[in-house]
Write a protein that binds this DNA or RNA. Sequence first.
DNA 1: ATGAGCTTGTGATATATGCAACAGAAAGGG
DNA 2: CCCTTTCTGTTGCATATATCACAAGCTCAT
Lengths: 220, 220
Amino acid sequence: MLTQQELEQSPLFENISYEEYRRMLTCFQAVQRSFRPEELIYDFDGPKKDAVGIVERGEAALIRIDEDGVATVMETLGPGGVFGRTLAFAASGHDSLEVVCRTPCDVLFIDYAHILKRCENACTHHSLLVQNMLRLMSDKAQNLSRRVDVLSRRSIREKLLCYFRQLSEQTGSLSFTLPFSLSTLADYIATDRSAMMRELKRLRTEGLIQSDGRRFTLGF
Amino acid sequence: MLTQQELEQSPLFENISYEEYRRMLTCFQAVQRSFRPEELIYDFDGPKKDAVGIVERGEAALIRIDEDGVATVMETLGPGGVFGRTLAFAASGHDSLEVVCRTPCDVLFIDYAHILKRCENACTHHSLLVQNMLRLMSDKAQNLSRRVDVLSRRSIREKLLCYFRQLSEQTGSLSFTLPFSLSTLADYIATDRSAMMRELKRLRTEGLIQSDGRRFTLGF
DNA sequence: ATGAGCTTGTGATATATGCAACAGAAAGGG
DNA sequence: CCCTTTCTGTTGCATATATCACAAGCTCAT
């Protein structure tokens, strides 16, 4: 259960009062659970398939495990992050998808049907929740879109520059700090790490970027 | 304006009667327009930024044009397809995004704020539309997710097999037909066309796939 | 039919990228 | 604190991939 203060920061329950929030939990038959790091939060092939999960506290990661057992981080889920079979991610056949806890997490599970179905109790806040859900979904789609934008570039150099431009735009500055390590950056742009390092060096010597650790500045 | 029959097939207005539909158009101050092939439907940097577009009839394509003028198809929009700056796609800096008409189109424009804002008229169907919108958004996210799944593979071979598996699952059969040409397939998986052709040949000689034109069958 | 434009198919060559392997730096855990 | 793990940085080498170039097949509109 969220505290009143946490509720106010939860994107999913924006504009919803504490009273309403509590009533909704019962109305939706929501289940809330806490998780510890490394713990499995959600298995896309598991029994709770049709549930939607919302990260309320902490951080989790959506991970794909391919047939060879290689794990790839598909998405990082912070507070407000949503996941669920019905929502977005489609595993390709042999692969499996999991949500794994990173830092201690509180996760809310709501059956997807309950969200879409019109509320019999004529719960006025139902539609408000759906609207917030819509916002979260469109955020998710936007992130995916950005990722596609990067991944659809044909060389490591272009991928890097594309991603850097995105970060630059988001921060509104030519300087920015990577949200993750260089290694996971290589994963993010789906390329070999050492090859990426080489390209980074080239970009640096050519004066297109400056970089120190995870801090980057776009040169001109 | 949609005919009653078309309305019933529009994913956005599912479960909404013709009467309600007409009332909603005024309630949302929706604007409807028809387009002819090649015509520009929507410019992401244009004046109607904050509008959401819904393809009701016909086909359109969401196209990215990079700084060198190279156009890439980001998405194909059929009936029910939604697009809009606030919704999903983020152009990276110098690039621009456009929606261009393929086959004669009817497109509905609704101001995004009008959708999210609570309806003063206490219009009961408002929430229903938002719910449908949510469904469309999650479809979109799912498509993007699938594309990321493909693009995050590290070789042409893996990309192809991943995409083929997706198609196979969607059709529920080991045989399927590409929804576009081989050339645009190369674009879709973001690789060189001739390199892709070579890989296809290899896959064929190794017996992993059979193919004839756009018709493919996954071998075992 | 005739050509324009697009798609499909193939090869020779240059090069970018992936792979394996290593070592120091930094970070986290007991 | 030390120890373990992850991250960072770099290299030589094999190869997958892009580039360029050409030609035949297809579709569509005139």
